[in-house]
C-alpha cells in the first residue's frame, strides 16, 4: 500500500540546512497498522507529512497504492489526498465555523456530493462514533475526545486507503486515549484500512502490529508487537 525507499528531506532556513530524513525505506502492506516512535525532532512528523502529500521529498521514491508520488501539481495532490488519505491530527484541526456533521462531510463536499446526501453519510459516521447527538454542535462546544472522534469520522468518510495519524492522542487523557485507540483498531480490523500512527506513548504503540523507531532521520528498529 505504502512503499517508500531512500527518502531524503532537508529543510533550508536562511543559511541553515537541516537534513531531517536521511534515507528512509519502508513498506506498509494493505490493512497493516503501524506505529512510529522516536525522540522529539527525529523526523516522525516530517515523514508522515511526506506520506500525506502535504510536503514533498527531495530524494527517493514514494509509491502510494500503485501511484508514483513525484512532481505532482497541487490539484492532483489534493485529489489524491481526498481519495486515498485520511488525516488525524494532534490538534484535531476541525473547521471552526462548521458543525460536527458539516466537518465530517467536508471531504465529500470536495467530491461534489450533494449536500443532503453527504450530510446523511456524515450522520452515519457520527453515529458510529457515538456522536449523533452532537452533530449540530460547533467544535468549540465539544470535548477533546469528542473532537478527535469527529476528526476520525471525517478521516473515514471518503473511504481512504490509508489513515495517517500524527499523535492522535497527544492532547487527550489516558482513558480517552484508549477509547480513541479502540476506535482506530476497530476501523483497522473491520474496514481493512492501513494505518500509520505517530506516538510518544508505549501503551499506544503496543496496540499496533508493528512499531517503527526513528532515530535522527533513519529507521533504526522495527518491533513486532
Amino acid at each position: 500500500m505504502v512503499d517508500i525507499s531512500n527518502i531524503h528531506k532537508t529543510y533550508i532556513t536562511g543559511n541553515n540546512k537541516l537534513h531531517v530524513l536521511k534515507g528512509i525505506d519502508l513498506k506498509v502492506d494493505a490493512g497493516e497498522m503501524i506505529s512510529v516512535m522516536g525522540a522529539s525532532g527525529s523526523g516522525k512528523s516530517t515523514l508522515l507529512n511526506i506520506l500525506g502529500i502535504l510536503d514533498n521529498h527531495d530524494h527517493g521514491e514514494y509509491i502510494l497504492n500503485g501511484v508514483r508520488i513525484e512532481n505532482l501539481n497541487e490539484r492532483k495532490a489534493a485529489m489524491l489526498r481526498n481519495k486515498f488519505l485520511g488525516f488525524v491530527f494532534q490538534s484535531f484541526n476541525l473547521v471552526s465555523f462548521k458543525n460536527a456533521m458539516e466537518n465530517v462531510a467536508l471531504p465529500l463536499y470536495y467530491q461534489n456530493v450533494k449536500r443532503k446526501k453527504r450530510n446523511a453519510i456524515a450522520m452515519e459516521f457520527l453515529d458510529r462514533m457515538g456522536l449523533k447527538d452532537w452533530a449540530h454542535h460547533l467544535p468549540n462546544e465539544l470535548s477533546g475526545g469528542q473532537k478527535q472522534r469527529v476528526a476520525i469520522a471525517r478521516a473515514l468518510i471518503a473511504k481512504p486507503k490509508v489513515i495517517l495519524a500524527d499523535e492522535p492522542t497527544g492532547a487527550l487523557d489516558s482513558v480517552t486515549s484508549q477509547e480513541v485507540m479502540d476506535i482506530l483498531t476497530d476501523i483497522n480490523k473491520n474496514e481493512n484500512i492501513t494505518m500509520l500512527i505517530v506516538t510518544h506513548e508505549h501503551d499506544i504503540a503496543k496496540r499496533t502490529q508493528k512499531t517503527i523507531r526513528i532515530t535522527d532521520g533513519m529507521i533504526t528498529e522495527i518491533i513486532k508487537n
Binding site: 500525506g52 502535504l54 489534493a78 489526498r81 481526498n82 473547521v95 471552526s96 470536495y110 471525517r154 471518503a158
Partner: peptide
Amino acid sequence: KEIGIQRALGATPRI
C-alpha cells in the same frame, strides 16, 4: 490554517 485544513481534505487550488 483553515485553508490548510481544507486543502489537506482535498480542496483543490481552484476551489
